[in-house]
Design a protein around this nucleic acid. Structure first.
Length: 279
DNA sequence: ATTTTCTCCTGCATGC
DNA sequence: TGCATGCAGGAGAAAA
């Protein structure tokens, strides 16, 4: 899916279109995505109600009125696109949220790994999809390095899997996990509980750096991601290891390799990201 | 308790 | 060209 930078880019884009407006018509073209869509409740929450909030939480985003929230997850291939009402619908359009007779937002998701759900007014931190989420990596009120170090003491799984665990820290998916570890010169298979406090400082700084840079570039488009206007992001031009198998590392010239961790492609430089036996 | 595996689904690249 | 295979940025549930 889109990871944190892509969802953040999208949310920033749609926020100005939605705040202070309301949906006048909502259409669903199928009854379920990953779960049954609560169509009736979503209409109650949204129709004719002023939108006062559009926020991201991890890779989810919420559109809020005084009645509650529409929760959205884009899965792997989801898009939330602002369209002119006269534009023909593309394949896999599953829902349409109309603001007025010529502007609507369409939810499109070929793989249907995404979700549309309702969140009650006071359920923002208690909804099952949101309650278990870890910290926001860009939250400046959190000492991310300290937090990750403490959380990792009982975790011997590879650091890359640890960084992608959304109950620990949200928003870091397969691309940015590899990129952040490259930037901090740590091997993706390094057991999380063998990483020093000092090294976690580098990991935390690197993760924030990569995420911020990616947001600034409008996200990464490998294949599916588009912003609300259907445009791709540009951060893929700045990727250092993701998808760069056998290419030379831009930092040291070493060979970039691919391995599989938890079933996911993982990329790293075989020369400047060495496994440490003692740490 | 932690960690890996499985699963949902379509589209696309690759190789025979 | 057609067909089979594998892979794709997620994440929850189940199994180990």
């Amino acid at each position: 899916m889109p990871e944190l930078p892509e969802v953040e880019s999208l949310v920033r884009g749609i926020r100005t279109d939605l705040i202070g407006r309301s949906f006048s018509k909502i259409e669903f073209y199928r009854k379920d995505l990953r779960e049954t869509i609560p169509q009736k409740r979503l209409r109650q929450i949204l129709l004719g109600e002023i939108i006062h909030e559009v926020v991201r939480r991890g890779k989810y985003f919420l559109i809020g009125t005084n009645q509650g929230f529409l929760g959205v997850h884009l899965g792997m291939s989801g898009r939330f696109v602002k369209s002119d009402s006269t534009q023909p619908q593309v394949a896999h359009t599953h829902a349409c949220f109309e603001i007025n007779s010529d502007t609507q937002f369409r939810y499109i998701d070929p793989r249907r790994f995404g979700r549309l759900f309702s969140v009650e007014k006071n359920e923002k931190n208690d909804h099952p999809f949101l309650a278990g989420l870890g910290v926001e990596p860009l939250d400046k009120t959190i000492d991310l390095a300290k937090y990750l170090f403490q959380k990792s003491r009982t975790r011997k799984q590879p650091i890359k899997n640890f960084l992608m665990d959304s109950s620990v820290v949200v928003g870091i998916g397969n691309i940015y996990a590899s990129e952040a570890l490259w930037l901090s010169k740590i091997h993706p298979e390094q057991p999380a509980n063998t990483i020093s406090r000092n090294d976690f400082s580098r990991v935390a700084d690197a993760a924030r750096e990569v995420l911020n840079q990616a947001i600034a570039a409008g996200g990464t488009t490998f294949r599916d991601y588009r912003d609300k206007d259907g445009n791709p992001g540009y951060f893929q031009k700045n990727l250092s290891v993701y998808g760069k198998v056998t290419k030379p590392c831009s930092r040291c010239g070493g060979e970039v390799l691919r391995l599989t961790l938890a079933g996911r492609s993982t990329f790293f430089c075989s020369f400047c990201q060495k496994l440490k036996i003692n740490n």
